[in-house]
Design a protein around this nucleic acid. Structure first.
Lengths: 334, 334
DNA sequence: GGCTATTTTTACATCGTTGGAACAACGTTG
DNA sequence: CAACGTTGTTCCAACGATGTAAAAATAGCC
């Protein structure tokens, strides 16, 4: 039913290989034959069978991207950028969702055989070092997002400790003194890094490290941010600023602040993390850490590419794309 | 380098086909041999080469999902649900982004050969009827999102006209009289339907159809919604309610209303469309049309599945999943 | 024209898997 | 014990493409 090289060859009156040569741009084909083949290609609407080609070539043309949930704006945005970057290199992207659970993350990483995809970008949330299969005969893996996890793999992530430090220092510079943090979660790789940055910034400012103002959350969703903020505001000495470990938590915090009758930033300042598109339009707009997402996507694709092209075993590389602090209404009156 | 059936066969001391039989659950294999093969499978960590298997079977195990942009929350959420639904049927999902331009949509639809994917879910924005290749020898295609486009394909979409009618009638029932619409765009399939529902609802309420209150937008993004709202508020007789054709436009409208010093819903009520997660947390939370997204994803996957399973040519089917109106703070004071 | 050098085309094997047919081993049965 | 159906296994061809090497066609040269 589908058109194959053979069909085209029959129509053009040449051998299958000659058609293959034309399709692949081989130089030595008689102009006359090339023309005939090209006509036949056009007439039949031939399209190569990717599976067969890759079976022969040993490549699949696919990359996998593992994320917790696409419905989370940060991952939606990242996935979009990854797909675009991959396309430029001729890859199609296959997306796997893990809901951020360790079991599903492990299952996904295990299933990434060399046949299904040429490489994978994984954005783990709860994976631990031992969960990664030995690099042995495996496809190139790139870790997205900084983690405490210590594993010999290529990675791409902004400097989370420094970014958190910048965010909190910004609050300090505005004269805030009781600075809370929302998002502590021992399960999550980035959490401990951002927490470290938060603590370091407080220490550098000579402020007491107030662990009573560090709110844990189970997930990085809006509702959790709202709940955490409620708990903070119910305290005897509530904070005058909050550093949220992502924008969703911050959006939730904004809502609880409003419901509590507080003005942001006058009564309490809020900083987010990720600079998702939503954060520029919340009321008030969120001050947030803005990682260069496009650079992250590009770097990750480049790493996969060079792994596949280059020699088998180069030392794992780590890329740290830039980030910036996007100052908006939630910390500074405009 | 990768383990093949042959390797397993050698290790187990049986033929390749016997291993294949074990892997595929063929009944008649001597228990002794089955055990040996299973041990060998475990020992080698064998994984079938999907490409080769599909080459033989004529299936690829992939579905394509075409959307404008993953960074748009509605599509991020839908993509997540589609992936989950597809996974249950054993499919992996490949995502293609078109930015909503007709050229890229057409190019994408054209490229969906039978080799790359078993079927495709396409969410067109600007495609016209003639852009679809004849069903001839093609893979099953399911159209997501209702459109004026008349093409003989399976489709899944809520009833956009009725949904818009419900949204606007809600505003009418609250006593609003000057109801604007943001989102008119002749290029976009759903726009004309929602506009029709809007007009019908006004007519049914005996309100004059005020075309001066219909604001066109180029894209369904927050910034466009904000700009459109600004234009509306600059009018001599500004509206007392706005129906936005999606939540992003509504979020933008919220911001412009706030910047204009208006209280929502007291001074102006706002309704969105899509019930993206963001809409429940905006300030105020958005009243919005809530399509049953999970049902849409399930229905689409089911359609593909039954197309592939069933007879070649059944008449195109159209599924209309339910929707509801989610009433929140942007129209009713709590 | 005969010979080599170069260009162009073809036949064949191969990637890893599975369907089908052939074959072997087995216990039943007439 | 010959004929038979049932199980279990193997061999071979095929899916569609490409690499290799050999064959064929063409050109260049003495």
């Amino acid at each position: 039913m589908a058109v194959t090289l053979k069909d085209v060859a029959t129509l053009a009156g040449v051998s299958v290989k000659t058609v293959s040569n034309v399709v692949n741009g081989y130089a030595f084909v008689k102009p006359e034959n090339r023309r005939r083949v090209e006509e036949a290609l056009a007439a039949t609407g031939y399209r190569p069978n990717v599976g067969a080609r890759n079976l022969r070539r040993g490549r699949t043309g696919f990359l996998a991207l593992m994320v917790p949930e696409l419905s989370i704006p940060y991952f939606g945005e990242m996935a979009g950028l990854v797909i675009t970057a991959a396309q430029r290199r001729g890859w199609s992207v296959l997306i796997e969702q893990t809901q951020g659970t360790r079991d599903r993350e492990r299952a996904t990483v295990d299933s990434l055989g060399p046949h299904l995809v040429d490489g994978a970008l994984v954005h783990p949330e709860a994976l631990e070092a031992g969960d990664f299969p030995a690099a042995e005969g495996k496809i190139p893996l790139v870790l997205l997002g900084e983690h405490a996890v210590d594993v010999a793999l290529d990675r791409v992530a902004i400097d989370n400790v420094r970014a958190a430090h910048v965010a909190v220092s910004h609050l300090v510079s505005l004269g805030r003194r009781r600075i809370a943090a929302i998002g502590a979660n021992p399960q999550r790789g980035t959490s401990s890094l951002r927490l470290a940055g938060y603590r370091a910034a407080l220490a550098d400012a000579g402020l007491p490290s107030a662990d009573s103002l560090v709110e844990p959350v189970a997930k990085y969703h809006r509702a959790e941010g709202a709940a955490a903020m409620k708990r903070l505001l119910a305290k005897e000495e509530p904070p005058d600023a909050v550093f949220c470990f992502n924008d969703l938590l911050a959006v939730g915090a904004l809502r609880s602040a409003a419901e509590h009758g507080l003005r942001v930033p006058d009564d309490i300042a809020i900083v987010g993390f990720d600079n998702t598109e939503e954060s520029a339009f919340s009321l008030p707009a969120l001050t947030t850490i803005s990682p260069d997402k496009a650079a992250i996507a590009e770097a990750a694709i480049d790493l996969i590419h060079s792994r596949l092209a280059g020699t088998e075993s180069a030392a794992p590389r780590s890329v740290q794309p830039p980030f910036s602090l996007e100052v908006r209404e939630s910390t500074v009156v405009s």
